[in-house]
Simulated assay, not measured.
Amino acid sequence: MSAYAIPDGAKFATIKFARRDGNVYTLPPGSPVIVAALRHDPEHGAGARELTGFKPIYALLDTGADFNFATPELIAEAGCPQIDTARLRSASGWIDSTKHVAHIFLPETGSQYETDVFSSPLIDEGGIGQSLIIGILVIKSGRLVMDYKSNIFRFYVS
């Protein structure tokens, strides 16, 4: 077992850090991001197969977000079907949203999560934002290690 109580050889996605200059760096400061892809995969759970046709992007890992969020453009591009409507509280007030069934794929680990994703513009006051935010719905399925002393930043998956 590792010092983090994670089995040796466990798969993980490397966390990097996005900064306001638009670049992604190996070490902090910055917002924690991982390479992910949003998709709709009707064959999810159908057993081992090769996943193709995904567009990897940097997704924000947000431990303060209960849910997952994506821009309407990314949701449309991924073909995620709408399953409900919602009203969300954002930093600037309430916004109307839609709820979609989606799959978040982590190419680095080969793991995919079927989850809900809410549509949101995801742009902050400086005009900077991520097109995908991964919240606790997905984070709690793995183990997030943010060891600033040892410079170990990983999202372990089951």
Rank of each mutant, 00 (worst) to 15 (best):
V138E: 12
L144A: 05
K149W: 00
V145K: 02
M146V: 10
I123H: 02
M146T: 08
S120G: 10
G142H: 12
E125Q: 13
D124L: 02
G126R: 09
I134H: 08
Y148E: 11
G142R: 02
L132D: 13
K149N: 11
L137R: 10
K140A: 08
L137Y: 07
L137Q: 13
D147H: 00
G126L: 12
S131P: 00
Y148K: 05
D147S: 02
Q130W: 08
E114M: 12
S150I: 00
S131Q: 14
F155S: 01
V117R: 01
P121G: 07
L122M: 13
I133V: 15
L122C: 10
E114A: 06
S131N: 15
V138Y: 05
F155W: 11
G142I: 07
R154P: 00
T115N: 11
S141T: 12
M146H: 05
I139S: 12
S119E: 15
V145C: 05
S131H: 07
N151H: 11
F153W: 10
I123R: 13
V138I: 15
K149S: 12
V138A: 02
E125A: 10
R154K: 15
K140R: 15
I128W: 11
T115I: 06
N151P: 00
V117T: 10
K149Q: 14
L132P: 14
E125Y: 04
F155M: 08
R143G: 01
S150N: 15
G127P: 09
S120I: 05
L137S: 15
F153E: 07
L122Y: 08
R154F: 07
L132F: 10
V145Q: 05
L137T: 14
Y148A: 13
G142E: 09
S150K: 14
I139T: 08
F153H: 12
V117L: 03
Q130V: 07
P121R: 02
G127L: 07
V117E: 09
S141R: 15
I136E: 11
V145M: 07
R154M: 04
Q130G: 02
S150F: 02
Y148S: 11
P121Y: 07
G135L: 07
I128Y: 10
R143T: 15
D116A: 11
N151D: 15
N151W: 03
T115A: 14
S150W: 02
S131W: 00
Q130R: 08
I136L: 13
T115K: 05
V138R: 01
I152C: 06
L122W: 12
K149R: 12
